[in-house]
Design a protein around this nucleic acid. Sequence first.
DNA 1: ATAATTCCTACCATTCCGATAGGGATTATA
DNA 2: TATAATCCCTATCGGAATGGTAGGAATTAT
Lengths: 149, 149
Amino acid sequence: MKISAKGEYGIIALIDVANYYGGEPIQAKSIANRYNIPERFLEQIMTTLKKAGLVKSIRGSHGGYQLAKTPWEITLGDALKALDGDISPMYCVSENNKEQCSKERLCTIKDVWEEIRGCIQKTLSSITLKDMCNKKMEREMKAAHMYFI
Amino acid sequence: MKISAKGEYGIIALIDVANYYGGEPIQAKSIANRYNIPERFLEQIMTTLKKAGLVKSIRGSHGGYQLAKTPWEITLGDALKALDGDISPMYCVSENNKEQCSKERLCTIKDVWEEIRGCIQKTLSSITLKDMCNKKMEREMKAAHMYFI
DNA sequence: ATAATTCCTACCATTCCGATAGGGATTATA
DNA sequence: TATAATCCCTATCGGAATGGTAGGAATTAT
Ligand code: FES
Ligand code: FES
């Protein structure tokens, strides 16, 4: 029941990119350095985010990443779905439901997984990158010279 | 973000034991057979549940397992906490918080994990074994000759 | 005595995760 | 046009976790 490092790194990166929304593209290398994320690993993560349509990339020198939508159009749910594949606690209630449990029709527990998936989904899809940026800014206003994630 | 097989098997077993509440102890072997769970694996799971104080065991011939509390005193939250160790989506918001994230005090994402942990916890701790038994019974009443999990 | 059970400990195979690595493609700019 | 800075693609790898197996000891009813 844990969110992967990939998921966490990806969210950190996305929030960072969102912070630069409207400006110059931001490089994977820069993000990796500032948040202490392995550089080559982050590259792969950014590719994932790109394939999911959350960021767009600019290649070549002075290249980097920018949001593919506005910060208030992208939710943490979108991010985690792209990064960890899914946010359901059990395969039988996954959105891209491939694997079924054996006794699915006779299972009374499935409802529980469904409910959990629902509340996670609801929470995550209610928080946008914009929200996260705002929170970060607020905190940095109160505590001078400190950079929040 | 998936619940382990151990977690699922354990919950199935617990519900089954709860179904026999007040009667004879029920054997791991019997549970394993009926729900198609590897026998020796289930033995270990039952040990986990025992150590967590959810079931008590009776050794020797005609032995087996019984609930250590009433079915309405044990929640699915108790069960999963015992089986999967924890239900938090990130170590920094775990109840038995050992590992801390590096920049914990500067992290704005932690709040999100906290919120998710909260809603999972709330859902799981609101469902008792009694609830699950009732649901099972209701469904079996409506569909004759079918045994639900 | 025997059979049925739980209990304890070790082990094993596979998968997943986090990360590293090499090298190619693209682009600004000097 | 050369160079440096990027992103991009693919392969690989070590370690940890997961799911399961195994042997045999301890306990108990019959
Ligand atoms: S159907 Fe998936 S847990 Fe029962
Ligand atoms: S402190 Fe744990 S994710 Fe930020």
